Measured scan of single mutants.
Amino acid sequence: EAEIKAARERAIVPLEARMKQFKDMLLERGVSAFSTWEKELHKIVFDPRYLLLNPKERKQVFDQYVKTR
Rank of each mutant, 00 (worst) to 15 (best):
R69Q: 15
E3A: 04
R49L: 01
L41S: 09
Q64L: 06
D24Y: 04
E28I: 03
F22Y: 05
D63K: 13
V31A: 03
Y65H: 05
I12F: 07
P14Q: 06
I12Y: 08
L26Y: 01
G30L: 02
L53M: 03
P55T: 14
A7T: 09
A6W: 07
R69L: 13
L51K: 08
A6Y: 04
W37T: 02
L51E: 13
L15E: 10
P14T: 09
T68W: 06
R8E: 08
R58F: 01
L15R: 10
E3F: 07
F62M: 04
E40F: 02
A11E: 12
M19W: 06
L51V: 11
D63N: 15
I12P: 14
I4R: 04
Y50Q: 01
D47A: 01
V61W: 01
A2C: 03
M19I: 10
M19K: 14
D47K: 01
A2I: 04
I4M: 01
Y65T: 05
E1G: 08
Q64M: 13
Q21S: 13
K56C: 07
P14D: 09
T68F: 05
V31K: 01
V31S: 01
E9G: 13
F34C: 09
R10Q: 08
S32H: 11
Q64N: 12
L27T: 11
R58E: 01
V13W: 05
Q64I: 07
D63V: 06
F62Y: 06
K67N: 11
V66F: 09
I4G: 06
V13I: 07
D24M: 07
M25W: 00
P48T: 10
R69D: 04
K20V: 14
G30A: 08
V61N: 03
E9R: 07
K67M: 12
E28W: 02
K5P: 04
Y65R: 02
Y65C: 04
N54P: 08
E40G: 02
M19D: 02
K59T: 11
P55I: 08
S32A: 12
E16Q: 09
A7L: 09
A33Q: 12
M19E: 08
A6C: 09
G30D: 10
L26S: 00
A6Q: 11
I4H: 08
A11T: 15
V13E: 07
K67L: 15
W37F: 09
R49G: 02
D24N: 09
E16L: 07
R10I: 15
R8I: 04
F22H: 00
Q21K: 08
R29C: 12
S35G: 07
P48W: 06
P48D: 10
F34G: 13
I12A: 09
Q60T: 08
L52W: 04
K56V: 13
E57T: 07
D47E: 06
P55W: 07
S32G: 10
K67S: 15
F22Q: 00
P14H: 04
E16T: 07
R18T: 03
V66S: 11
R10W: 07
L41I: 07
R10L: 13
P55Y: 15
D63W: 11
K20L: 03
K43E: 02
F34W: 11
R29D: 02
I44P: 00
L41K: 14
E57R: 12
A6S: 11
L41M: 15
Q60F: 08
K5S: 07
D47P: 00
S35Q: 07
V13P: 08
E16K: 12
L52M: 10
I44G: 02
S32R: 06
F62L: 03
Q21R: 14
V13T: 07
L51D: 10
A2N: 04
F62T: 01
K56P: 13
S35E: 12
K67V: 13
R10D: 14
E57M: 07
P14L: 06
R58N: 01
L15N: 11
V31Y: 02
E9T: 11
E38Y: 03
V61I: 07
K59S: 11
K56I: 13
I4E: 08
L52P: 03
K67R: 12
T68P: 09
R58W: 01
Y50F: 14
A17K: 12
V45S: 08
A6M: 08
L15Q: 11
F46K: 15
K39G: 12
M19L: 07
F34Y: 14
E9S: 07
R29I: 05
Q21W: 04
V61T: 13
H42D: 15
R10N: 14
H42W: 05
L27N: 12
F46Q: 15
N54V: 15
E1N: 03
E16N: 15
L51C: 07
F46P: 13
R8L: 05
G30S: 08
T68S: 12
K59C: 14
K20S: 04
A33F: 07
I4A: 03
L26F: 08
A7E: 10
D24H: 14
G30I: 02
Q60W: 08
K39T: 06
E57W: 10
F34V: 11
S35V: 02
Q60H: 14
R10H: 09
L27D: 07
H42Q: 08
V45M: 08
K59L: 14
K39E: 13
K56H: 09
A33I: 13
E38N: 09
K5Q: 09
R10C: 08
N54T: 11
V45Y: 06
T36N: 15
M25S: 02
K23I: 05
F46T: 15
K20P: 10
P14Y: 05
E9I: 05
E9D: 08
M25N: 00
K20N: 08
A2W: 09
A6D: 10
F62I: 03
T36A: 08
K43C: 02
W37A: 03
R29V: 10
L52F: 11
A33E: 14
N54W: 05
K23F: 14
Q21I: 06
L26K: 01
K39M: 12
W37D: 02
A7S: 09
E9H: 03
Q21F: 09
